[in-house]
Amino acid sequence: QEPLTASMLAAAPLKEQKQLLGERLYPLIQMLHPVVAGKITGMLLEIDNSELLHMLESPESLHAKVEEAVAVLQAHQAKE
């Protein structure tokens, strides 16, 4: 599967941009946290697209963001 580029993303309408990013991010996140992959992906998709593209290219930044999101999700669930 060829990498998702900024120009590919720019060519798509906003709704599809998030879907494209989600479809790429989800399998990567699922490897880290299979149980909450859907929730974590949904949280990260609210981030700016340029940062999401960067995360797709840089596993370290993706990993850091995912761990951050897991902590936020756990705090949110503890509050409920």
Binding site: L14, Q19, E46
Partner: peptide, 26 residues
Amino acid sequence: SNGTNVNWPPEFCPGVPWKGLQNIDP
């Protein structure tokens, strides 16, 4: 409200249109 929105986060499922778009539509 105390902000505990049970619909948050808008979960992503592959192949299913993501529901979180209404939160970010400009």
